[in-house]
Structures are given as C-alpha cells and as structure tokens.
C-alpha cells in the first residue's frame, strides 16, 4: 500500500503544477489559436520574482507570492502588447516563431540578471516529510501547500470564467472571435485579461516549484513542454481539459516509471502526447471545430 500511495501522491504533486501551467497554454490557444511557447519562461520569471521578494528583500512568503503573480501578470500583458498584438491576423506561424524568440529572450534575460547560479528558497535545515496515516505515504509541508494552492487557484478560475462578465466575454471570444466583436465585446481587452490571468497562474506554479526544488534560468523549459502536453491531452482550448491533462500526465509519469526504467520518465509524457495526437488529436474534452481541425 505504501508504495502505491506514495507514487500517487508524487503524481498529484507534479500534476498540480502541470495543470496550473497548462491553463495558460490552453486559455491563450482557446482564443488566439496559437501556442504561446514563452509561457514556460513566464513560469520561470514567477519563480525568480518570488525569490527576489522573499529571499533578497525579506518579504513574507505569501506576500512575495502575490507580488510575483502581479509582476508576471504585468509581464504577460506587456509581452502580448509588444510581441503578439502587432502580429494578430497574420496567421498562426508568425506569433509562434515570435513566442519562441520571446522564450529565448526571457531565458537570456534571467541569466543576465540572476546569473546561471542555482538559487534556492531553502534557508535552513531540511525536514523529514509527514507520514499520512493509514496510507503510509510521506508528504512535505510545501507539497501540501502545492496541492492546496493549485487546486484553490483552479477553482477560483472556474468561478471567474463561469460567472464574471470578463469571464463570459472570454468564453464568447473563444467561441467565435468575429461574432463576439460584433456584439460589442472588445477582443483585445479580453486577450489582455487572458494573458494576465494565465501568466499569474504560471507564476504561482513557478514559486511553488521554486520553493520545493530550486531555481535555474532554464527551469521553465521542461515544465513548459510537459504542461503543453497536458493541455493537448486534455483538449487544447478547454480549461477543464488542461486540469485533467495536468494531473493525468503527472500520475502516468510517476506510476509509469515504477514499471519501466526511470530514465524514460520524460519519454512517457511524450509517448502519451504522441498517442493522443495520433488517435485523439482533439484531446479528451476537445470539440472538433473548423479551425482546430486545420491545426
């Protein structure tokens, strides 16, 4: 029992982070039909901002987290305005290439400012995790925080999209860009909100991972790819799909290496991606729409 439970816990922790980051990919794709490859770097930026506020400036962890989310929200807004907005309506390829450029730019910027040094939130002694009664699995305090924060943010997003005016506008624009603008919704405003919210969520993920593991300028790359996979698996464009996909990838990856050699951990996520692209390209919750088929 202990081992199985431990693997599931490990999978859920990893999955929570994938889900948070996948939300950003899927929200942007849902509206703009392009994959924002710079999203993983926003995740990295969030981790570093949190580190700056918390470790360098000595701000309380929670306040530092909120500040980092705000900082990344601003960054997401600016990136969209500078890099993507001028390219709108020019097809899918230009913004995609630009996104890769922005991603490299942010990585280089992080190396320039923070150095290639590995940074860490850990200041004191490493404490043994807590054993969960009955199932005999070990979990650390930070990991509990990861699960709670990521689930809370996802629930908050659900209510935001479902019940607020901006949330409804987002769904409308995602459903049909032209019709939404005809009925008086300003798509540019909605897109800005999407970038702001997606980036803030990625920042939260970045800080959580940063606290648990450590910070490097390239930390966003592998999480970015896995989360993108999660978004595709869940059905890109669908936020519930992103959450489901995130947890799925986390669990499959961790349970998978119980059976096959652990060096193949990353390969498992990509095998799942391939499987879905081949047999169910629209993902679990994806709906076939004219534009999506052409992707």
């Amino acid at each position: 029992m202990g081992i199985a439970a431990q693997l599931i816990i490990n999978g859920i922790i990893a999955g929570g982070i994938y889900a948070l980051v996948a939300l950003g990919y899927t929200m942007v794709y849902g509206i703009l039909r392009f994959i924002n490859f710079a999203h993983g770097e926003v995740f990295m930026l969030g981790a570093y901002l949190g580190w700056v506020f918390n470790i360098l400036l000595g701000v309380n962890v929670i306040v530092a987290g909120v500040l980092a989310m705000l900082g990344c929200a601003v960054a997401g807004f600016v990136i969209d305005k500078i890099a993507y907005k001028p390219l709108r309506g020019r097809g899918m390829l230009p913004p995609l290439i630009t996104a890769i450029g922005i991603s490299l730019f942010l990585q280089a910027l992080a190396i320039l400012i923070f150095g290639a040094q590995i940074r860490t939130f850990r200041t004191g002694e490493v404490v043994r995790g807590i054993t969960i009664p009955f199932i005999d699995a070990i979990i650390t305090k930070i990991q509990i925080v990861i699960i709670i924060v990521s689930v809370a943010l996802m629930v908050a997003l659900h209510f935001y999209i479902k019940y607020t005016k901006t949330g409804k506008a987002m769904r409308a624009v995602a459903d049909n860009y032209e019709v939404a603008s005809i009925v008086g919704i300003n798509p540019n405003k909605v897109i800005s909100y999407v970038f702001i919210i997606g980036s803030a969520l990625a920042a939260a993920g970045g800080i959580l991972v940063g606290m648990e593991q450590n910070l490097t300028p390239t930390m966003g790359v592998s999480i970015g790819i896995k989360s993108f996979t999660a978004a595709v698996v869940g059905g890109i464009g669908n936020i519930y799909g992103a959450v489901l996909g995130g947890f799925m990838i986390g669990l499959i990856e961790n349970i998978g290496i119980w059976f096959i050699p652990s060096g193949y951990k990353d390969a498992i996520a990509f095998a799942v991606l391939l499987f879905f692209l081949l047999f169910k390209p629209t993902g679990i919750f994806g709906v076939k729409k004219g534009e999506e088929v052409s992707v």
Partner: peptide, 20 residues
C-alpha cells in the same frame, strides 16, 4: 539502479523505488 534526465528536478519516484 535508477537514472534520470540531467535537468530533472523531481526524483521522488526514483527515490521511492530505491527505498522499496
């Protein structure tokens, strides 16, 4: 024996296997 990609950050499952 357990291995991982050089830039991996989450080794819990590998460690769990070693423990087992």
């Amino acid at each position: 024996e357990q291995n991982y990609e050089q830039d991996a950050k989450d080794m819990r499952t590998q460690i769990t296997k070693i423990k087992d």
